[in-house]
Write a protein that binds this DNA or RNA. Structure first.
Length: 538
RNA sequence: GUCCCCAUAGCUUAAAGGAAGAGCGCAGCCCUGCGGAGGCUGAAGUGGAGGUUCAAUUCCUCCUGGGGACACCA
């Protein structure tokens, strides 16, 4: 019995007793204050002005009678209706979790209903291959990884994708920069200024005799992707399934095909030699240039082709984009444009992350890849463990602007709740270690067998109540793509684990040892979702 | 100028319109028991003015203060 099930069942139960509006407005939510219970609903608030108190009491009775097996109490408090899970239900849920955790085939064991399983493409990081990854890219990486895991948990087929902009103006500029380093042309102000370019120019010197900037840029970008970006991603623990190259879009006649389609829809117009997409017809403020007057396609056009390719050739049902807030306009207009191809709202979703600002004490550092002012992700994770950086970003919801203080990086790393969570895991591990040395044995965890005894212990019961809500929390995280609540949850759970450890002597009680074993498995499973490596010894 | 995001405890932050929750820091207490990077107790909070609602940190309007976007750049 989780929150979603309770909601579904109660709505069904009361369908004939209540009006449609009330059924629709009924909400169920987790209770934060543990003494009040586990689940609550706004039902009684909705009823108070519509129905007589007799009728209301009748409905409460009906609910109580129907659910007495699952809850130890169903109580009306301040007009909330609060449900408290009973031991029987807790154990039942525990048994399900037990199965989920130990059958970890690609996470896909949470949902039995495979009919709502979609082919999903999630596109994240996708930084231009003109330089190393920055601190800001890590935010997207952490978010994307966890989101992909959650979607997998729901049984979706997920492709984690990195879109590589390996052509166009920026690549040409990159090429020119390399040429300048070779001394073939003179430097200009807008060239890339990062220190790494000198290095790359040196490396590529013997490999090519080309002098077309676009081609050299492409070679340099491949080099950067392979030697700077990919190794950093690996180090950070982010593994994309697929790297898609923008240049590929222009090799298959796709461009002509799309232009033809758009023309047929009367969505194109030529002005002063440029081809415009008439987004104003779709309610946008301005039209969008697809082909510039010099014949070059714009970035927006590439994006349009790319998404057509994703939806209609690679057959993804849903595409999720994780991008920085500066892409808001772009991505919103793209969504509009995709409607021309009958892509529906739910099929194209985007998550906007606000910026990560870098500062050093009081000094604001303006990050700019072109000017070469930024801290690379690589430098950062040499300073601070990758998983701590990951934890740091996951903790914060995407819509807040983050000020990252470099001079506090070390401090932030030490004070990070990451340690609090890892410490809970490490402590439990060390207890089992010790028990093993003492040649103690315990049943390989079977929650059903051990739980009835253990539920008498207050701390254990609180832990199990938390674990029972695992699925509810995943549901919430999935619904609005708010992964930060996963961090809230694990901190709360670890608080209870610490408390359990502090108050209960685990060795040599076999039940407690078995429970400890289970907790370790649960934490590891959870860490897997977060993309964090569990530590046995700190 | 138009649009988007943000403002919660000393700091970093969380809250599907539902009973403001954490971490760090601060004050006090707790190691013969397995890790004190811990436990327990406490002080401390929704920027301002209206509105909608049984109920507003959450939605609406305005104000103030921060960040970002508004190219034939990507």
């Amino acid at each position: 019995m989780n929150l979603a099930t309770l909601e579904k069942k109660i709505k069904k139960l009361l369908k004939k007793d209540l009006d449609k509006e009330t059924i629709e407005e009924m909400r169920f939510f987790l209770i934060k204050e543990k003494d009040l219970g586990d689940y609550s609903t706004n039902l009684l608030f909705l009823l108070q002005n519509k129905y007589s108190s007799d009728k209301i009491n009748q409905i409460i009775e009906k609910i109580k009678n129907h659910f007495y097996q699952n809850f130890s109490s169903i109580e009306r408090v301040n007009n909330y209706l609060n449900f408290k899970l009973n031991d029987y239900t807790l154990i039942k849920i525990l048994r399900q979790k037990y199965k989920t955790i130990f059958s970890k085939k690609n996470f896909s064991s949470l949902k039995k209903n495979k009919s709502r399983s979609f082919k999903i493409n999630i596109d994240y990081v996708s930084a231009n291959p003109t330089g190393p990854l920055t601190l800001a890219n890590a935010r997207g990486a952490a978010l994307g990884d966890v989101l992909a895991n959650i979607l997998k948990l729901y049984g979706h087929k997920v492709t984690k994708e990195y879109y590589v902009n390996d052509r166009g103006t920026q690549i040409e500029l990159l090429g020119k920069t390399i040429l300048a380093h070779w001394g073939k042309i003179s430097f200009e102000d807008n060239f890339y200024q990062g220190y790494y370019l000198k290095e790359i120019a040196e490396k590529l010197k013997n490999k090519t005799n080309l002098d077309k900037p676009q081609k050299i840029g492409k070679i340099a970008s491949d080099y950067i992707l392979k030697n700077y970006i990919k190794p950093t991603l690996r180090k950070f623990g982010t593994f994309h399934d697929f790297f898609f190259f923008e240049s590929e879009l222009y090799q298959k006649g796709l461009k002509e095909k799309i232009l033809k389609k758009l023309k047929r829809e009367n969505m194109l117009e030529e002005r002063e030699g440029a081809v415009y997409l008439l987004l104003t017809k779709l309610g946008e403020e301005k039209d969008e240039v697809l082909i510039r007057s010099n014949g070059e396609p714009t970035y927006f056009f590439s994006d349009l082709l790319y998404h057509y390719y994703k939806f209609f050739i690679r057959k993804f049902k849903i595409v999720i984009l994780i991008v920085g807030a500066d892409h808001l306009n772009e991505v919103r207009r793209l969504k509009q444009a995709l409607k021309i191809f009958k892509i529906r709202n739910y099929q194209f979703q985007y998550i906007l992350m606000q910026f990560v600002h870098l500062k050093k004490g009081e000094e604001q550092l303006k990050m700019s890849k072109r000017k070469g002012v930024f801290i690379t992700l690589d430098e950062l994770i040499n300073l601070v463990k990758a998983d701590i950086v990951r934890f740091f970003f996951l903790q914060k919801s995407p819509e807040i602007t983050i000020e990252f203080d470099l001079s506090l990086a070390q401090k932030q790393s030490e004070e990070n709740p990451y340690w609090y969570v890892q410490y809970a895991h490490a402590r439990l591990c060390s207890v089992l270690e010790k028990a093993k040395k003492m040649k103690l044995s315990w049943l390989k965890v079977n929650p059903q067998k051990i739980a009835f005894d253990l539920l008498k212990i207050e701390e254990v019961k609180e832990i199990i109540r938390d674990i029972a809500k695992f699925e509810d929390v995943i549901n919430i995280a999935n619904k609005d793509y708010r992964v930060n609540i996963l961090i809230e949850y694990i901190i709360g759970l670890c608080k209870k684990i610490h408390s359990f450890y502090e108050k209960e002597k685990i060795i040599p009680d076999k039940n407690k040892l078995a429970f400890t074993d289970f907790l370790i498995a649960f934490l590891r499973f959870y860490f897997l979702i977060l993309g964090i490596k569990p530590i046995k010894r700190i």
